[in-house]
């Protein structure tokens, strides 16, 4: 079994090479627009490739929208942005049926959610009702209006942003909803030198127009299929299980990683390994995606070390590589 898989993996050396080149290309292109965030760009692309959704938690103005637009541009995908407000209704997101006088029938007008990449800006400003409309669409990859089901485009990728600071009139996503995001990232402020470059240089938004698509959606889906075929050694699965077990058994956490969390961790690591051009997943890739995949799913026990320090880092430092 393992040998057979190994053979397929080796047979696709060309594909691996292509994937590695593509990953580098995306990093380079997007990196022109967003300076100094190579890790985040790579993780965001990995998340997209894995078919998961991304939650960016950061203060306004650090380039969340720019990242989403840049990704859409280099991947040749359609892009829509939804600004969430407190008076928003589900129909404002998914669309509604409108009666057409001439045809004398109802016609579905798709909402902004019908795009490959959807930026749900400040998702915590809207009511849970509007939030759940989007989250349902994320989960099902389709929306249902008046009994009619409308498939969303493939690939479908949501980047939601939320302000981490508690502000009046916001509704932070509960844990059960957080679990639906494959990754959570923070962008953070640019480094001093890069910020200077940013201040001196032209408006980055103008650069967006110069970005050329490097892959189409069909190529993206082929890569996703290739990622599923990557080799997983027993040693690596031992490591993943040790990590998961630690989050469940350690006294640091009230809530450990769910089985879905563990699956997401492996899938994200596969995609990152593919972008690195590896025929199998290395522990480095698990470590690289762990904080983004697990960080928002762990609930530290109040008063424990994990409540103060970065919990994902604590886990990685406590679990030996088998």
């Amino acid at each position: 079994m393992a040998m057979a898989r190994n053979a397929t993996a080796l047979a696709n050396t060309d594909q691996l090479q292509q994937a590695r080149l593509l990953g580098e290309q995306v990093n380079r292109e997007v990196g022109q627009v967003i300076l100094g965030k190579q890790t985040e760009i790579e993780l965001a692309f990995t998340c997209l490739l894995a078919g998961g959704h991304l939650l960016i938690e950061d203060v306004p103005g650090v380039g969340k929208t720019l990242l989403a637009r840049a990704l859409a541009a280099v991947l040749g995908l359609s892009f829509r942005r939804i600004q969430f407000t407190s008076d928003m209704l589900p129909a404002d997101i998914i669309g509604m049926s409108v009666f057409e006088q001439e045809a004398a029938r109802f016609r579905f007008h798709p909402g902004p959610v019908f795009a490959h990449i959807v930026l749900a800006d400040e998702i915590n400003r809207s009511t849970p009702k509007a939030q759940s409309a989007l989250l349902e669409a994320m989960e099902e990859n389709q929306v249902t209006v008046d009994g009619e089901t409308h498939a969303l485009p493939v690939p479908f990728f949501v980047i939601a942003t939320q302000n981490p600071l508690h502000q009046a009139g916001t509704h932070p996503l509960p844990e059960s909803q957080l679990d639906r995001f494959l990754m959570r990232l923070g962008l953070g402020y640019p480094a001093e030198g890069l910020e200077r470059k940013l201040l001196r240089g032209e408006d980055r938004r103008l650069l967006l127009g110069e970005l050329k698509p490097v892959v189409d959606s069909a190529g993206l889906m082929a890569l996703r299929a290739a990622a599923r075929e990557l080799f997983l050694s027993d040693a690596l699965l031992d490591y993943v299980q040790a990590l998961v077990r630690y989050t469940r058994q350690s006294a640091l956490f009230e809530l450990g990683l769910s089985p879905r969390g563990a699956q997401d961790l492996v899938m994200a690591a596969r995609c990152l390994a593919l972008l690195h051009g590896h025929p199998g997943v290395h522990p480095d890739e698990v470590k690289a995606v762990f904080a983004a995949v697990a960080g928002h799913r762990l609930r530290p026990r109040p008063g424990s070390q994990a409540a103060v320090r970065d919990p994902a880092r604590l886990v990685l430092e406590s679990v030996p590589i088998p």
């Binding site: 393992a2 040998m3 898989r5 190994n6 993996a9 080796l10 080799f231 050694s233 040693a235 690596l236 590896h278 025929p279 199998g280 997943v281 290395h282 522990p283």
Partner: peptide, 9 residues
């Protein structure tokens, strides 16, 4: 080592 250990049997 990585290849032998993680990329196949």
């Amino acid at each position: 080592y990585l290849r032998l250990r993680y990329e196949g049997v």
